[in-house]
């Protein structure tokens, strides 16, 4: 790849100081570092992954509003946690987490447990209570 062929398709990295570095050939045939903000197929792959996550989350959101699931299920989806990872980060046993996915049990949770969940999911306790 030549220096001028390095793709610059920005989508995700604009506001950050992260860049993809490519090793491309300059005019003299030597390799040099070129910073890139992204490449279309790669951005597409990442977008597709997120679109799917958000689609799944939307289904869960409707279930939460219909009173079939607790908001915890929704936030786990958009934060990419499964029960195992959530259990090891928060210290709450898997068995309890599975119970807390039921709305009637989630409603009775004390503030300590809610705070543990909120901290792990990087949201506030208020956010965690609604979707």
């Amino acid at each position: 790849m030549k220096v001028e062929e390095v793709p610059q398709d920005s989508r995700f990295l604009d506001d950050t100081n992260l860049r993809d570095i490519y090793y491309a050939l300059d005019a003299d045939g030597n390799y040099c570092q070129v910073a890139s903000v992204g490449w279309e197929p790669k951005n597409d792959a990442l977008s597709l992954t997120w679109e799917n996550i958000l689609e799944d989350a939307e289904v869960l959101r409707k279930e939460v509003l219909a009173g079939e699931k607790s908001p915890l299920a929704y936030y786990m989806k958009i934060r990419l946690f499964d029960v195992g990872i959530l259990a090891s980060y928060s210290g709450i046993p898997k068995r309890s987490i599975k119970k807390h996915l039921r709305p009637e049990i989630f409603k009775q949770l004390d503030d300590d447990t809610l705070k543990k969940y909120a901290d792990t999911l990087n949201i506030t306790v208020e956010e965690l209570k609604k979707v």
Partner: peptide, 9 residues
């Protein structure tokens, strides 16, 4: 998509 991400991310 996962393969492409591992290839390029």
């Amino acid at each position: 998509a996962q393969i492409i991400r591992m290839l390029e991310e």
